[in-house]
Design a protein around this nucleic acid. Structure first.
Ligand SMILES: [Mn+2]
Ligand SMILES: [Mn+2]
Ligand SMILES: [Zn+2]
Ligand SMILES: [Zn+2]
Lengths: 140, 140
DNA sequence: CTATAAACGATAATTTTTTTCCTTAAATAA
DNA sequence: TTATTTAAGGAAAAAAATTATCGTTTATAG
């Protein structure tokens, strides 16, 4: 995802293309999932006098417009990511790494709708565990 | 779950049995899932000069001891519940109702471990949708 | 009962998030 | 291009959420 595509996406939502916004999206494009502090640090590196409020305001408006998505994690701070296909998250309890996994949630949805009568619209799945690297390290 | 069982559980974790704690657990036992504000209101009704800090401290220590569990929801404030068998949550986007559903997550776990190499320890699943009551109301 | 340590309430302090307000700069049109 | 307009930025204050402190109360062990 290059700068021009990001800019186009912003314009499609009638959002101005500012350097701060580009940097936020580029950071997410590079690192995948970042919490508010990480995002602030990233943007600050490129624009030292960016305001934390600017980061808050931008992730809020970009999330409202469906460009970004917030992922709530059981034990740690929420992270943001660029919106894409629905997927589930693996969160390493040792190093905090977050990985995306594609998974068809149709069975879950069907089961849930059958037993509850709910009409399911979306699903949020976060699995907690130990990533391969941390497993290796632990085995010492 | 009656008062005596709650008291026993608390004592098993070397936590003193106080009226405020009993009320917190009883409220959760009655309503299922409550956020911090709801819990505070509940306890306040029985003990008008309870401190909000007491509620915070109690849910924290009871959660640390595995008596309670925190459930993070995509759009709204986190709720707490009495810890029980792992289960998934249905959250109505209209009325906010939260329902428990039992579901075997073995397939998800197996798939995730296979494709990622992670060793999965736990899973958090929240489905968002419209509950039966709200579907009926909508149909007007 | 008494002694002791945990828990309480009140309050302050911290942390997190949102709002305000004035300035700056991106978008649009002349 | 240049001018106009309007959204967005930065700084700061305000609000909201959470945690810590501290003197007092109370549950529990002996
Ligand atoms: Mn993701
Ligand atoms: Mn539940
Ligand atoms: Zn790891
Ligand atoms: Zn409903």
């Amino acid at each position: 995802m290059d700068k021009e595509l990001i800019a186009t996406n912003l314009r499609n939502h009638h959002l101005k293309v500012t350097p701060q916004r580009l940097k936020i999206v580029e950071s997410l494009n590079t690192f995948g999932h970042l919490n508010i502090d990480m995002l602030y640090q990233e943007v600050k590196e490129a624009y030292p006098n960016v305001s934390l409020a600017t980061v808050y305001k931008n992730i809020a408006i970009m999330t409202e417009n469906g460009l970004l998505e917030k992922v709530k994690l059981p034990e740690s701070k929420s992270v943001f990511e660029i919106r894409k296909e629905p997927h589930l998250h693996l969160h390493c309890s040792k190093c905090g790494k977050i990985e995306d996994i594609s998974f068809d949630t149709e069975q879950i949805r069907a089961h849930a709708e059958a037993v509850s009568g709910y009409s399911i619209q979306s699903s949020d799945i976060v699995l907690r565990g130990v990533c391969p690297a941390c497993q290796t390290n632990a085995k010492k």
